[in-house]
Design a protein around this nucleic acid. Structure first.
Lengths: 181, 181, 181, 181
DNA sequence: GATGAATGAGTGTTCATTCAT
DNA sequence: GATGAATGAACACTCATTCAT
């Protein structure tokens, strides 16, 4: 059952559709029709369906792709300035939320549960967050009674604040002060 | 130009539709058809449209109704235990968010801007929050460098956390510690 | 089974609705909803239905009212300048068509057949036309081989021309020349 | 920017829908639902919308198609028996009106203005009429004081007469006599 | 009799998905 | 594999008509 490698043009088409779909859904919400995604990607609607058999699976592919990027982005902070790393990570995630605009809200609004459909991506992501927290706790910049679930929760909150209001400097300071021992 | 009062049965129907629509959209998202709202409310689809000429206006009516309830709920905290009131308010708002489930996200995802369509409701709401903050600052339980916009932002964040994860005791403690002088 | 006389306000309402409906349908076509007619007449929708049990019957009442007016208008031309009367009649009918605007077209488009639903009104109307033609033929201004059906046909055509193009002086002259012996 | 040619089956479907819609609207008026047109054409409703994105555009396509046919039909009369050609043209148009039955009335009743939406088709059509008139005037069978607008107006009137009454031989004779010098 | 709220079938239109080319 | 035409189930919204007040 090894999947045969895709033809070169198929690889290009898949990547093109994924990129266009990500940008479009992030900017305009999930209501954009598949036909429109196909048009913007310069392919036929049938081609989109060949690579992503339903619209839901296209969403999943987008989110998976995105979570991987975020995980990679987080990983490069590990061991760099251990006391600050977790706060830099939070700020970065908040900025990413601005890039993703309504994508998270849109997906939530439509009722897709990321943790259920993408357990592996979620696990990797939480793993790197756990490392950053442990570093901070060792460095004395993070209170010892918070765990990865708490920080993820605060991250979700900060992202929501950012989408609600562009400048969250004061709110971020409050959260940071609250996280400091 | 005072509009004549609605007939008794019309008042009942309007209230019934509003309640059913609120519960349904909060629980299942905005995708539920008007026909289904009508069916659950036990009225014809035309009746829904008589009271709320478009689906968007129905959303607005729901949100307006909700914001009014929240404002009233906040108002009764004023002057009660001034140092704690703002924190009780935040907890209460967070619990309301749990009740509203996906409604706020759903509405945001569809692109309705509450502050634009309901400026009066928003103004009243912010007014009572400002009072609670001032009380807290006088009582010494709230740092002096935060204003109503900051607290609203944190509230939005806390609501998002609550929707993301049922138990936000620890995250709330972090925010509270960060807000304390 | 003698119908009891209508109450005074009922008479007023009936007349008001008939007038408003005539003006509205003539100006905007038959697509205008009954609710809108009722609103413009300052009555409830139910009142319209009390007087005209279906929309079709309202159309019929309008047309009947109109044909009566036209018949009366034609009758006063009888014996006045016998040679010219029939031409004056045609010109008048053409002007009435301008007043009625799209009413005739609208009714035709919806498939109502006037001669079927209003035989009496039609008979009276044709009767007075016949008189005018006979006068003209006696006076030598109308060719002897045309009858009332021919003139009615030409009248329908002239009305259509008028609705198509405001100024039909030349076309009318052509028809008049063609009708002259 | 030449649009690529439609696929063979798409061409067939477009033509099928256009033909069925023409026949149906002409015979039964514009009130017939698109779903019914689709059913009679043996396609899905979506297919009708692919080719004609709104009902209005479908009407326009029908009328454009029709005016082109009429223009072609008129063109073949040019130079054939110059004195009679314009009268043959009028008779032919009148017969076409019978075929189109309520289409013109229906379209007028709904408020579509052909000259506005199809200026090119109208221009070609008037051009060929002008030629026919000029021929007739040179041949001495048409009075010299009528122009293309007058004849178009008379044509509209004759078509209305025909729709009103099947046999317009006498009325046509009257118009013809009026047009003769 | 008058009112206007309620009804519910019907319509134009959209769009996820399938499939012939 | 790619294309884009076809499908048909939904859905928002309208409006003639009925009926409780």
């Amino acid at each position: 059952m090894a999947e045969r490698p895709l033809r070169a043009d198929a690889v290009r088409n898949r990547a093109k559709v994924l990129r266009v779909a990500y940008e479009t859904f992030a900017a305009e919400g999930l209501g954009v029709p598949i036909d429109e995604i196909a048009r913007r990607a310069g392919v036929g609607a049938g081609t989109v369906y060949r690579h992503f058999p339903t619209k839901d699976l296209l969403f999943q592919a987008i989110v998976q792709d995105r979570v991987r990027q975020l995980t990679d982005s987080a990983r490069e902070l590990v061991e760099q300035d251990p006391g600050e790393a977790v706060y830099r990570f939070l700020l970065r995630m908040v900025d990413e939320a601005a890039v993703d605009q309504g994508l998270v809200d849109a997906i939530a609004g439509v009722g897709i549960d990321i943790e259920t459909v993408l357990p592996d991506a979620e696990r990797d992501f939480l793993g790197v967050i756990a490392e950053l927290i442990a570093q901070g706790q060792r460095a004395g910049t993070v209170r010892s009674d918070v765990d990865v679930a708490d920080v993820k929760t605060l991250m979700v909150g900060l992202q929501a604040m950012r989408r609600y209001r562009g400048d969250i400097a004061k709110a971020f300071q409050v959260v940071r002060d609250g996280l400091t021992p």
